[in-house]
Design a protein around this nucleic acid. Sequence first.
DNA 1: AAAACGATCTACT
DNA 2: GTAGATCGTTTTG
Length: 205
Amino acid sequence: MRVPLSADFYARDVVQVAIDLLGTELVRRTREGLTSGLIVEVEAYLAERDPASHASRGRTASNEAMFGAPGTAYVYPIHGRHCFNVVTEAEGRPSAVLIRAIEPLAGRPLMERRRGDVPARDLARGPARLCQAMAIDRADNQRLLTSGSSLWLARSQQPGDMLPIACSPRIGVSRAQHRYLRFFLAGHAAVSGPRKVSSCRWLRQ
DNA sequence: AAAACGATCTACT
DNA sequence: GTAGATCGTTTTG
């Protein structure tokens, strides 16, 4: 069962959505076939006031997706690649969760074809690498993720499963002195986050 | 019109 | 761990 998460799931506090996204399945269907992966690393970008957010300097054509309905995809280009976010909270409140790494599940051979000859560990580890593996690009910007047509998220864990959630020890400061909140599944092979963690707690999914 | 700047990746050491 | 590639967006002159 890969039932798409509903708008209600996304229309909540961005940090809570980020944590709850860990362990869910990102599903992609194209003419080439179906690919999917378990989300193992995310970053929460708060609201319009947060300098780390792309929306911190107002509404523009390129960040328009962030102001859309909860459950909208925000895909943006950087360094010649693409990164994928899901928009959260109420429409008009520009907050989003950056998906930083997935553990490949379905369609691994197709992902390998898209990524080329890379170490297995790097197949979908990193925000731009997972976009390449899943063939996510600017055409997916502003796509609604709640319909389950070609790109969506689905609950993967069984109710009651417990996941080890960790957060970065350096919550907070990127090279550009911007704040961010990074969460990942502790000890998971496919995270690009730091090996040392400041805290780890088990959450009911 | 030109320059600077990344929510990055790769190939080195 | 770090330099260099890379390219759309934003800022500056």
